[in-house]
Nucleic acid binder design. Structure first.
Lengths: 223, 223
DNA sequence: CATAGATTGTGGACGGCGTCCACAAGGGGA
DNA sequence: TCCCCTTGTGGACGCCGTCCACAATCTATG
C-alpha cells in the first residue's frame, strides 16, 4: 500500500498508466463545478492520487492543462449540439418534407443545443471559452464531438446546407457564422452570468425563441 | 522617509487618506493589462505602497475588491458608449432631421461604442463581465458613466425612444434589450477572445456592420 | 486641552498554489 | 543482463489570500 497516504485515492502501482487522460478528466470535473478558475493543478493531481509534480510529465504548466480541459469542454459542447440535432422530430426531416424547412430546423437545433449546454453546464461552458483562440484554433479536430466536428464546424455545415438549398444567398454566406454565433453566444453569456440570471425558465424560452428568430430573419431572406 | 522601503511608492504619512479609491484604481490598472485574474490583492496594495492587510480595512476580501473593480469597468464601458453617442454627426441629430433616423443612429452608436470599448480595452471589458450579476445588479448607479446611467440603462433608453417615436412596436418592446445586447455582446467576445481574433480591421468593420444591421432588422419593422 | 476609544495601517504567520531541482522506480531495447 | 529513458516522488521557493495581535493616528468627550 505504498506510504501511509495523506490522501485517499492511492494506487498500488508506481506507474499510473494513463495519467494524462486522468488529469484532464479530473480537470473537467473541477471545471464543471467551479468554472475555469477551478482547474487547479494540485487539485487535479490530488484527485488522481499522484504527486503534484507528476503533472509536469504530461503538461508544460498549468496553462497547458487548462487548454486541454478547455478543448475537452468544447468537445462536450459539440456533443450537446449534436444531441439536439439528432433529436429533431423525424417528420421535419422526412423525405417528403420541405428540404429548406429541414435545414432551417437543423440550424435552429444547433442554436438550441448551444443554449441548453450553457444552461445545464455553465461551468464547462465558461471553460470552453476561457482560452483565447483564433480561427485556426476553432477548427482543430481536438475540439470535436462524436461526429468529428468542433462546434464551429457544425454551425458552418448547417449554413453551407442552407446555401446549397438556395435559402441563404451566396453573397450573404461569407461571415454568416459570426452573425449567428454572436447572437447565440451573447445570449448564453447573458443567461448564465449576466442580467438574465434568475429569470424564470418560461421567460427564458421566449427570449431564446426571439433571438433565434432574429438570427433567421437577419440571415435568410423571407421565402 | 519611513523605514528603508522594499517597494517604491512609500508615502510619508501613516494614514493614506483615500486608500479605498486608490486600491480600486490600482485594480483597474491591473485589470486593464491582465483582465480580471490580474486583480490581485497584494499587487494592488504594493502599487499603492501599503501593507497587504491594509486592504482588509476597506474590502471584506479579494472578491469584494474584484467586485469594485468590475463596477468601475462597467462605468468605463458606459463612458465609451456615451462618447460614441456624443460624437454622432450633428446633421443626423439636427432639428429638421428625421427623428426616427436620429434615434436609430443613437441605438447604433451605443452598439458601436460597446464594440469599440471591447476592442480597445479588452482587459477592462472582460473585467466588466467577470462578476455574475442579475437584472437588479445591472441598474445600480454604481456602474454609471458620466450621465449617471449604467450600460444597460443606456440601451434601454435608446429603445424607449424608438418606441415612443413609433419605430419599435410596443408589443416588441419588452425584452428587446436582450436581443440587441446578445448580438453585440456575443460579437465583442468573439472579437477579443474567440475565432475572430486576428481578423483584419476592415473585415471586422464589415462584420460589425452586419451584426448591427441584423439587430436593427430583427427589432424594427421595415419603414 | 487632555485623554479614551474608534479607525486605519503594520508585522508576522499559516496553508495553498505553481514551479524548479534532484532523485527513485520501473520498463524497453542492446 | 544491463543501461538508459520515461514517469512519478520529495523537498524547497516565492507568491497568493487571509487571520491575529499590535502600533499609529484621528475624533469626540469631558
Amino acid at each position: 500500500m505504498a506510504t501511509a497516504g495523506a490522501d485517499r485515492p492511492k494506487r498500488d502501482t508506481y506507474r499510473h498508466g494513463d495519467l494524462r487522460r486522468a488529469l484532464v478528466e479530473a480537470g473537467v470535473d473541477l471545471a464543471r463545478h467551479g468554472g475555469p478558475d477551478a482547474v487547479v493543478l494540485r487539485a487535479a493531481t490530488r484527485r488522481v492520487g499522484v504527486a503534484p509534480n507528476a503533472a509536469y510529465r504530461h503538461f508544460a504548466d498549468r496553462d497547458a492543462l487548462q487548454r486541454a480541459v478547455c478543448a475537452a469542454a468544447q468537445g462536450e459542447l459539440a456533443r450537446a449540439m449534436e444531441a439536439e440535432f439528432d433529436a429533431l422530430a423525424s417528420d421535419v426531416l422526412a423525405a417528403d418534407a420541405e428540404p429548406v424547412a429541414a435545414a432551417r430546423a437543423r440550424l435552429r437545433a444547433i442554436g438550441v443545443g448551444y443554449l441548453r449546454f450553457a444552461r445545464t453546464e455553465p461551468g464547462l461552458f465558461r471553460t470552453a471559452f476561457s482560452v483565447p483562440t483564433d480561427l485556426s484554433g476553432s477548427t482543430s479536430p481536438q475540439l470535436a464531438g462524436d461526429t468529428g466536428h468542433p462546434p464551429f464546424e457544425l454551425l458552418s455545415g448547417a449554413l453551407d446546407e442552407l446555401t446549397s438549398l438556395g435559402a441563404l444567398p451566396p453573397d450573404r454566406r461569407p461571415g454568416a457564422e459570426f452573425i449567428a454565433w454572436s447572437a447565440v453566444h451573447g445570449l448564453a453569456v447573458l443567461l448564465i452570468d449576466g442580467p438574465l440570471r434568475g429569470v424564470t425558465s418560461t421567460e427564458i424560452g421566449d427570449i431564446e425563441r426571439r433571438v433565434l428568430d432574429t438570427v433567421e430573419q437577419g440571415l435568410l431572406p423571407p421565402p
